[in-house]
Design a protein around this nucleic acid. Structure first.
Lengths: 302, 302
DNA sequence: CAATGCGGTGCGGAAAACGCACCGCTCATG
DNA sequence: CATGAGCGGTGCGTTTTCCGCACCGCATTG
């Protein structure tokens, strides 16, 4: 939209941290971009950027302005999608921020199912940690967030929460795979391939082990769920994952996924949420609906 | 703000109902304004105005757009006032929609008190009926509304509510002025000067009388509270008003204001409210605070 | 101390916006 | 039934705004 260029450009400058870098990304010369920033500041009567030797940085007034600008840009997108919707075009865009466990199977399936109905809708999926996920909601770079056990933030509005019991994941021919439910003390006797400490599943494990006398000594640690999965296929080790991160097809053939007894590890919660107070674009709202139905059909919803 | 001109102009066209009229008010030629509207519609991909022989009218898409546009314009005002506030300027503007009873004494006093602290803040007070008050909140032409017994609307967010017992108002030398509390049947024996049926106080009276055998035959009816007041000063008639509409100074010298017994007329409620979901500009929020304190100090708050 | 990267500015040309005059249309009115 | 008023829309010349280029001063850095 031409009439929101000022906001778009200011947003670009704030994100890039420098007028020259933002100029590249917006296909403008630094001089033109600089003048637009100056013109905006003059209209407003105050500067919104601190000029530093290595670039620019938002000042207090700038923080207020950038919040407004991003909210306005996002809301204009919603307006466009609402209008597109009422003219029957069914176009739109959905930006998702989520943790790694979602990318394995659940999200791709859900997006494919959604795009079967609305092929003109585009998606953006960004894998982030909990903090970055919340930030993405706040600066409108994500419409929906899917996180495991987030720190409660007042701006995070929970749309749905799903119980996720921690599962032990191993090769299908692993001795433990014959059991339906596993105790934690059985698992720790085997080589452990653990997700990095930044992940929610790891945190759950550590809290559980802290309550017992046993010890959590990983033989392998990785921040890549794919790598952990390949590792337990290659040797008789055990890794851990929440059910939503275990592709069902693979679980039947090569991998086995068995729940840990709830007495050992209490179930965690997977949350779907949006920025509080925001009206989601039509496409995003519809996708949220579909996810909610999928959750309800396949998992325990609380 | 230059970068929001498109929104400002579209809003003007929507309000004027015709491009030519809007062109006059915005100091533009009809051709220029027409082209801006066309350009905006082309960007958006859909028309937002129906072209009629006598002017233009918003279509469905236009209704969505105009809501967004007005929200953004109002929010930009809030941003400006927040910025002005943090640079210590204490400037701003408060737009109030209220019913007539407020104009007599309460609002002028409160505004004067406020402007003693913040002389650079400007005010706009529009007297409207209940319906128009809600509309004013919705199209952002008012920040705060003060209404007596409004129809509950989902978009009206109540900030405070105050009990207001109906009072009989008469000259200070009127026989009834000697009593502290009056029964309705005593009042109706005297000539009655009633507010017009559109007002909340009149409605309360009629409902009260309907429950009795007596009759409500006004000798005078007016939509001007000032006129009603002057009338009861000139002859021994009685009019009715809620306490907030009776100036305290005058009440002591020329006018007497005596509550009607609650058994006859149950107390009404005066509401202060804003549009739901909106963040008020700093000046308006501060004024709301002051009003809330004034209400709490002088009246029964529920 | 030179090199690099930053924001800021003067200037000429490109692009957008505007005002003017005018068109076609509908509808109230005499 | 004619006619004029009021409406949205358009072509064109002019004015205003915006942009890119070249360049400056400055701080940081290797």
């Amino acid at each position: 939209m031409r009439h929101l260029t000022s906001f778009r450009l200011i947003d670009a400058v704030a994100r890039a941290g420098s007028i020259r870098k933002a100029a590249e990304r917006t296909n403008l010369t630094p001089s033109a971009l600089n003048r637009r920033v100056q013109a905006f500041e003059e209209e407003l009567g105050v500067t919104i950027f601190e000029r530093l030797p290595r670039g620019v940085k938002l000042n207090t007034a700038g923080e207020i302005v950038i919040q407004h600008a991003r909210a306005q840009l996002a809301d204009m997108d919603r307006v466009r999608s609402q209008i597109a919707d009422l003219s029957g075009m069914r176009r739109g865009h959905v930006a998702i921020a989520c943790s790694q466990a979602l990318t394995t199977a659940f999200l791709p399936e859900q997006i494919a199912a959604y795009r079967a109905d609305y092929p003109a809708v585009t998606f953006d999926v960004q894998v982030r940690d909990r903090l970055a996920t919340e930030e993405a909601l706040l600066d409108f770079s994500a419409d929906v967030a899917l996180v495991f056990e987030p720190t409660a933030s007042p701006d995070f509005h929970t749309l749905m929460s799903v119980r996720q019991q921690l599962h032990a994941v191993m090769a299908i021919d692993h001795p433990l795979a014959e059991r339906a439910v596993l105790r934690l003390r059985e698992c720790v006797r085997w080589p452990l391939a653990l997700p990095a400490p930044m992940f929610g599943g790891r945190k759950m494990l550590e809290e559980a082990v802290a309550r017992t006398s046993s010890d959590l000594r990983p033989t392998l640690e990785s921040n890549s769920f794919v790598f952990l999965k390949e590792h337990v296929l290659a040797e008789p080790a055990i890794t851990f994952q929440i059910p939503i991160g275990v592709p069902e097809a693979e679980a039947g053939t090569r991998l086995a996924s068995r729940p840990i007894d709830e007495r050992d590890v209490p179930a965690g919660v997977l949350l779907m949420g949006q920025r509080r107070g925001r009206t989601l674009p039509v496409a995003a709202a519809r996708f949220v609906d579909q996810l909610a139905r999928a959750f309800a059909a396949r998992f325990d919803c609380v």
